[in-house]
């Protein structure tokens, strides 16, 4: 698994539950280091071990942890740069949804060896959409669920997300941890875009402000 993904999980646990908890999770997962390097590659099994250790220590189902991870990626101040990159998807939430097909390609532009699962947005007609994730590690759909929810807040859109095509049963995830790609399996998220401009979203300036010129 790419270090960026492992590092995201680490940052999520550390920023949400504290540094001490992260160290416990890392020890529980049998890591012989304290921190993932975001630009290095790691054995896929480590990701599964970290998630399993986190669910054990947090005493929470994996589904909830993964969805919270997705929300964290978009909404936590420490990850503002990532939110910005996602906002490059377009002016409206609909633009953003339609840009998701390009997300793996966009990621590869920046980090050539980062292989995100294939994403496809199907327009079902009216305000109904389905996001299909293919070839990702098991549970990736849950992370996307959190991302979609948080991005809706970011754009100020009102959406209804149906995750019945995503959530693997807790029992199955326990025996089949998300360290192996769910080959051939699809995860589907049904999206009902009730109101694209329900609330005032967060600001997005196209050119990053401050700092660099």
């Amino acid at each position: 698994m790419h270090g960026l993904i492992n590092r995201s999980i680490q940052s999520f646990l550390r920023d949400t539950y504290g540094a001490a908890l992260w160290l416990r999770v890392a020890r529980g997962a049998g890591l012989d280091f304290d921190s993932f390097e975001p630009m290095l590659r790691y054995d896929d099994a480590l990701t599964g071990a970290v998630l399993a250790s986190a669910t054990r220590i947090l005493n929470r189902p994996l589904e909830g942890v993964l969805e919270d991870l997705g929300t964290y990626l978009v909404s936590h101040p420490n990850l503002e740069p990532l939110r910005r990159l996602l906002r490059f998807g377009g002016v409206t939430y609909l633009d953003f949804l339609q840009s998701l097909d390009d997300l793996p390609g966009r990621s590869r532009l920046a980090v050539p060896d980062l292989d995100l699962p294939q994403l496809e947005l199907i327009e079902e007609g009216g305000d109904q959409f389905t996001l299909v994730c293919r070839g990702g590690p098991r549970g990736f759909g849950l992370v996307m669920l959190g991302v979609l929810r948080a991005m809706a807040d970011d754009y100020g859109a009102l959406v209804l997300l149906d995750d019945s095509g995503v959530a693997t049963t807790p029992a199955k995830m326990a025996t089949d941890p998300p360290d192996r790609p769910a080959t051939g399996e699809e995860e589907r998220i049904a999206i009902n875009l009730l109101d694209p401009a329900h609330a005032l979203g967060r600001r997005f300036e196209l050119a990053a402000s401050g700092g660099e010129a």
Binding site: L85, F88, L109, A110
Partner: peptide, 11 residues
């Protein structure tokens, strides 16, 4: 191009 500039800067 803006996206790429920003993404590359992060990397």
């Amino acid at each position: 191009l803006l996206y790429l500039t920003e993404a590359k800067a992060l990397v």
